[in-house]
Structure formats: C-alpha cells, structure tokens
Design a protein around this nucleic acid. Structure first.
Lengths: 194, 194
DNA sequence: CATAGTGATGTGCTTAAACGTATCATCCTT
DNA sequence: AAGGATGATACGTTTAAGCACATCACTATG
C-alpha cells in the first residue's frame, strides 16, 4: 500500500545506511525486533508517531512540521532528495561504526582503563574526516585487531598500540600529509600485506 | 502521557486555529469524528503516520525528517516556537473561513454564476491583508448576508452587492486609505447600525 | 433565557501496530 | 564449500488506534 509517506521512510532507510547501521544494529538500539525495522522500511506497516520519533532520533533525525509555503526553503537546506551515497562513504561509516562498537565492548570490561576513552575520542574525531582507500584499510585492520582482542588485562598493550596507530592516522589526514611514510596496513608483527 | 511529540501536536493545533477551523471543521474535512481530533490534540492518542500526514496536509503542512545538525537552520525558517496568535488574527481567520464556506455553498447551487468566482477571488486576496476592527466588522456583516442568502436565482443581485462591497474593502485596505467614506457596516437597506 | 457552536470525555467494536521468535535466500569473506 | 551477516517474511499474542455515537460544560450569540 504505497502511502504518501514514502519519502519519510526512504529518508529513514537512507539515514540508517548512511550511518553504517544494519537493521539489526538499529533494532537493538531502540529495542525492537529486526523484522519490525524491515517491515517499516518497506512500507509494510503504518508507524505510530511515537515509534517514528524514536526511530528518527536513534538516527539523529528530528521530525518537523513545515508549512507548505516554507517547504522549498526547508528542502533547500535538508537536501530534498535523500542522495544515494557512494559505496565508499557507506563502507567508511560501517567500519567506523564497528570500531566504536569494539571500543565500547572493551570499555565495558575495563571501565577503569583510560586508554579506551582516548581511543573512543580518536574515533569520534576520525568520523569528521573524509578518507581514502588506504586510510580505510588501516582503520579496518585496526578495528579487526580490536574486535579479536581478549577481554583480559593482557589486552591493554595491544589496545595502546591500536590507539597510537589511529592517532597517527588522524593526524596524517588532518594535516593532509601526502601518504604514510610506511604502508599504513603494516600494523603488527604478524601479517604483512593485503 | 507526555510524549516527546508534544511540539508536533502543538503545531498542529496552532495551525488549525490559525486557519480559523474548528475541530469539527477539520474533522469533517478529513472524515473523522471531532472527538478524535480532540484526543489527538490533547496528546491522548498515539497517531499513526498516515493519519498524521493526512491531518498535516489538511492544514497545509508537510511532515519532514530533518537531520539534527540542520535543525537550527530549519527552525530559523519555520519559526520554532509556534507563536500564539492574537485573538484578532484568529477572528479574522475564522470570519474569512466562514465567508469562503458561504461562497462555496452558493457556488455549488449556482455553478454557472461568474459572480461567485469573482467573490471567491476577492476573498483570497483579502486573506493576504491585515485589517482592523472596522474592516473585520464589514467582512463579518457581508459574510452573514451571504450565509443567509437563499439558494434561488433571486440571490444573484444580493450576491453582486456583497461582491462589490468586498472589492471596495479590499481596495481600501490595499491602498491604505484613511477610513471608509461611510460606515463600512451600513451594508444594505434594512438594518442601520450595531 | 434560549440557541448554537466550541472543545473535552466516555463507551463499545474492529482492526492492525507492536513485539517476540523463528525461518529464509542472498551475499561476501575465508 | 563453509561461515557469518545481511534483509525479507511468517505466525501468534497483546495492546491500542481508528471510528461511530453520545454526552458534557463552556461561551457567545440572538
């Protein structure tokens, strides 16, 4: 049943994909089953206002009632057609998201470790940048390391190494230096390259 | 249950009052009982998205999903706090609304009469003005005449008179002339004054 | 005072949203 | 080929929105 509310649902889906969240991620965030998110996004259900607002806020959106006369002005700001974002941008969002999740997990097991707060802060700063394929690979590799980290106290040195690598990445991008002095994805002792 | 959707409902109510519609008018327009409108506006129900959109459109509003980052910019345009409008503005909206309804009724019974289309056009133009107490009284009086008009063909001369009076009113306001040459509410042969 | 229009409430019925849980086909990545 | 993650569907239960009809107190208006 194609309601006249299609663009809202489309915006919702675009917003979710833009932030690199899966339907399951989002559903977990607001405490509903994934099946529900799917039904909503495909227009198979007629959302209640409270649900819509909750959903929108989880994606950092807000629901606004706009007089028709002012619609063009507002759409000029918001960007009317919710642009389909490039695959690269999506990958970047996804990996950043995974990294934050990994740090969050580690923080839960080590609430005392200051290194994790520093890591989280670095990740937030990285979220403001637009970076290339090599940078993406670096972030992806570091994230994988963080995800595989055991929850024991022995993880701290590895975490510190990851933290340092991410700060270097941030600084390089921030200062727009040409390229990494040595391959960015040569992270550790073991594996050497893609 | 004070949802986080209060401002939306408040905007809805403000929009309705601004256009001079009663809950019954609005309910008739979108085909729901008045009790439902009341429950909605008082936050006693959790609207479905389709209903909300329908309601908003009936009031010439549109529902838009705005990224939090752009919220200040959008609110600057829309006017954030839905200003409580003065009682005079409300009366003006109400009477204009009644007048349009009266003309619409007459048009239905006389689809051929060009005078009614002219009347409707004049009313639309008047809607763009801000007018004082005397003008309001004039409009109110003419509207009452139109409302009491029989549906027979004999109504045409009276309609023509009303049309002329409204055009004079519009011209006077548009050109900001000091005041009506003769009391605006001396409309017809019969009654003489308030 | 009577009448008409306003918004707020109440009661009952039908339908569907919300939710839990589970399965499915499809992609990638290993 | 095996593995994990993705989004789309299905089924059953509970709760409430939507709707209709009816009443109420309040306020202007004649």
């Amino acid at each position: 049943m194609p309601y006249a509310t299609d663009d809202i649902l489309q915006t919702l889906r675009a917003a979710r994909e833009q932030t690199g969240l899966s339907q399951r991620d989002l559903s977990a965030r607001i405490g509903v089953p994934q099946s529900h998110i799917s039904k909503i996004e495909s227009g198979g259900t007629d959302l209640r206002l409270s649900s819509l607002v909750e959903l929108a806020r989880a994606l950092d959106y807000e629901l606004v009632l706009v007089p028709r006369k002012l619609l063009p002005a507002v759409e000029a700001i918001v960007g009317g057609a919710s642009m389909t974002l490039s695959g690269e941008t999506r990958q970047r969002a996804t990996v950043l998201n995974r990294a934050q999740a990994a740090v969050a997990r580690l923080t839960r097991t080590h609430p005392d470790a200051a290194e994790f707060k520093r890591l989280d802060q670095t990740l937030r700063e990285l979220a403001n940048f637009q970076f290339g394929k090599a940078d993406l690979a670096t972030l992806r590799a570091v994230t994988d390391k963080l995800l595989k980290l055991p929850t024991g106290a022995a993880a701290l040195p590895a975490a510190e190494r990851a933290s340092r690598q991410l700060r270097e990445l941030r600084n390089r991008i921030a200062h727009a230096l040409p390229e990494a002095p040595r391959p960015a994805y040569e992270l550790d002792e073991e594996d050497d390259d893609a």
